[in-house]
Design a protein around this nucleic acid. Structure first.
Lengths: 202, 202
DNA sequence: AAAAACATGGAACATTTGTTTGCATTCTTC
DNA sequence: GAAGAATGCAAACAAATGTTCCATGTTTTT
């Protein structure tokens, strides 16, 4: 009954404006862009879109129309795994990335740059950025970021997590590498579970 | 000389507010949140942050403070590669994803869901979403999305691109598969170059 | 064809918000 | 310790923007 096309034009414009400017348009911006003569009309369109669930809008707040269903999560890049440093401190924050929430849901996510080839058979390559959900435990077979003290090595690594005979086994997905069974089992600390990754080719 | 800490508090707040609401705060929002008594003070902070390059702000526009260095690109997900359908039309649009521009620069990007194991040795797995930069040509060794007509197969595939003896060779990164040398060389069409990928574990 | 519902515009009004100015207070610097 | 700079505040102003009301034309329903 309503010219849905026109509504979609408005929606598209709001999306585009926000993309280009980083903040939403005003009612009058909408008017100007779509050649609408009255602010009341544009105001009405916006309300319709809100009623139909296409966007959110805070009452009386200027420039507060937000298109729904494209939520993003801001995730901090905390450093490099395998580089020998604890990576929990916010100090190591190297910047934030905005990721699509549809893909990477969850609280308390962070990014790590992967160093090394130890997970190559799981499709995690040197230089990839992995998305990690911070949690202190893991289930068998999950890929985790873990830390443990061991005479030889210290720091965080990405490995597949197993518990065999009551012992934590960190399994590299690389046929040329052996499982790690930390001597000091008590020192093993799970930093989080790997829930995704991002790669960009040079 | 200036209390840089205080400035950073303001910056953090702006960031946080925008994350939570989807649009930037007003000067008075900043005042309220950081217990600043005068709008002039908050206004001043914001200006300082702008001068120091931390944020952008459109003059006289309400709620237009945007933290810099976190730009995103909106990229459409156009469909599935290897599924036998041309994927250039906007019709196939399955939604938009917001990706960090720092990782995935460029105009005319789009996403495709990968189907099949043909690029597994290049770390591209079944189910991955690849980020493609639309372009009609490619250089030797680049990973591309290409289409070609051939009695047997039709549709788009991801392969590594080579030109050998004047002929286009599409090389699967999977030791159990053979190179594809399209019979009808003229029909080969490069849709774009793969510049990155995204994966989320279930 | 009349009545009702709808769509849009014009104009005014009310808030929200950005911006300016001047003053008091604190901190620097000499 | 005084001059000067830097900082923060209060208050007012001006502009941007959201919101409402009503009129007019258009479409749909009866």
């Amino acid at each position: 009954m309503i010219k849905q096309d026109r509504l979609m034009d408005v929606l598209d414009y709001i999306r585009r404006y926000n993309d280009e400017n980083g903040f939403p348009p005003s009612v009058r911006d909408v008017c100007a862009a779509l050649d609408i003569k009255s602010t009341a009309t544009a105001y009405d369109y916006i309300n319709r879109l809100r009623e139909q669930g296409y966007l959110n809008k805070a009452e009386k707040k200027n420039r507060s129309v937000v298109v729904r269903g494209n939520s993003s999560v801001r995730v901090p890049l905390l450093g490099v795994v395998n580089a020998g440093q604890p990576i929990l401190a916010v100090e190591n924050n190297e910047g934030y990335y905005t990721l699509p929430e549809a893909e990477f849901k969850g609280d308390d996510l962070f990014l790590l740059r992967v160093h090394g080839e130890s997970m190559i058979d799981a499709g995690i390559f040197d230089g990839d950025k992995i998305i990690v959900k911070r949690q202190p435990t893991a289930e068998n077979g999950e890929i985790v970021v873990a830390m443990f003290d061991d005479g030889t090595m210290d720091g965080a690594t990405v490995k597949r997590f197993y518990k065999k005979d009551g012992k934590v086994v960190l399994h590299p997905e690389n046929t040329s590498m052996d499982d790690i069974v930390p001597q000091n089992q008590e020192s093993v600390r799970i930093l989080g579970k790997v829930i995704g990754l991002m790669r960009s080719f040079r």
